[in-house]
Measured scan of single mutants.
Amino acid sequence: MTYKAILNGKTLKGETTTEAVDAATAEKVFKQYANDNGVDGEWTYDDATKTFTVTE
């Protein structure tokens, strides 16, 4: 399944996708990606669109 992350960081804005077996696995991948890029904020998840959003 393909999951998407939308990054609304102070220094990084954009989107990325990952293939994962479930939302929990995708969330770990996206949170690591955000952390590696200095983005730390509030996370939300929309199951209907399989989209995570982080906003700083």
Rank of each mutant, 00 (worst) to 15 (best):
M1N: 13
T2H: 08
T2S: 07
T2K: 12
T2A: 07
Y3A: 03
K4H: 11
K4A: 05
A5D: 03
I6K: 05
I6P: 02
I6V: 10
L7W: 15
L7S: 02
L7P: 01
N8M: 12
N8Q: 08
G9N: 04
G9S: 09
K10N: 10
K10A: 12
T11S: 11
T11D: 10
L12C: 15
L12N: 07
L12P: 03
L12F: 15
L12V: 13
K13W: 11
G14S: 12
G14A: 14
G14L: 15
E15G: 05
E15S: 11
E15Y: 14
E15Q: 11
T16D: 03
T16L: 15
T17Y: 14
T17L: 09
T17K: 08
T17V: 09
T18C: 15
T18L: 11
T18Y: 11
T18I: 14
E19P: 05
E19F: 15
E19H: 13
E19G: 05
E19D: 11
E19K: 13
E19A: 08
A20L: 01
A20W: 02
A20V: 04
A20C: 08
A20H: 03
A20I: 02
A20S: 07
V21M: 13
V21R: 12
V21K: 13
V21C: 13
V21I: 13
D22T: 05
D22A: 04
D22R: 02
D22C: 05
D22Q: 03
A24Q: 12
T25N: 07
T25P: 02
A26G: 01
A26W: 01
A26C: 02
A26H: 01
E27F: 15
E27V: 07
E27I: 11
E27R: 09
K28F: 08
V29G: 03
V29H: 11
V29F: 15
V29E: 06
V29A: 08
F30H: 00
F30V: 01
F30T: 00
K31Q: 07
Y33G: 00
Y33I: 08
Y33S: 00
A34L: 06
N35M: 15
N35S: 14
D36M: 10
N37D: 03
N37Y: 13
G38R: 06
G38I: 05
G38K: 07
V39Q: 03
V39N: 02
D40V: 14
G41W: 06
G41T: 02
G41P: 02
E42F: 12
E42H: 12
E42I: 14
E42K: 10
W43A: 01
W43Y: 02
W43H: 00
T44Q: 08
T44C: 09
T44F: 10
T44M: 09
Y45C: 01
Y45Q: 01
Y45V: 02
Y45G: 01
Y45A: 01
D46F: 04
D46M: 04
D46N: 10
D47R: 08
D47F: 09
D47T: 09
A48K: 12
T49W: 04
T49D: 04
K50G: 05
T51V: 06
F52L: 00
F52D: 00
F52M: 01
T53C: 08
T53Q: 06
V54M: 14
V54Y: 08
V54G: 02
V54Q: 02
T55G: 05
T55Y: 08
T55W: 10
T55A: 05
T55N: 10
E56H: 06
